[in-house]
Amino acid sequence: MKNLWKVILLSVVVIILVLFALGLENDPRNIPSPLVGRPAPLFSAPALDDGPPIVMESFRGRWLLVNFWGSWCGSCVREHSYLIELARKTAKRNDFVMIGVDFKDTKEGGRSFLASLGNPGYRHVFDPDQKVAIDWGVYGAPETYLVDPTGIVRYKQVGPLYDGWFEQIALPIMEKKP
């Protein structure tokens, strides 16, 4: 009986320590997205370039990279050169398309961001009251979603994309699923 209690006490302490160790790895700012593996929210939203509205469903049949950004976001500046490079690199792929969502921003802010840092060439949704962003479960910038040709979210990147992200993260997902 005495030993039983010792074992119970010891295992409780061990369990607490293990949970604590696992918890240390967690970033409280990183909220796992329940959208991964589920259909991406559809939208038809105004464009930053004042052109025709951007309709989510028009990208069906292609892999879609949706990048949420804002001119107010420092990490987006850091990420921008990679987005330009990625857009250039994937321009010839007819199974892959990129769009941006400029949220919580002013039109002037968004446009001058692109004018000064370079325009990657793809279109941007203009989402000043972050309706689209909230619909996608965005809570910071930059955040990027990879959506498969059937409209299912396959990956969410919280924080900036980095050199080699496409080859390391996106390509393996795209090649696994037809």
Binding site: S33, P34, L35, D135, W136, G137
Partner: peptide, 8 residues
Amino acid sequence: FFQRYGDY
């Protein structure tokens, strides 16, 4: 909100 942000 649960569908978008999880039980967080």
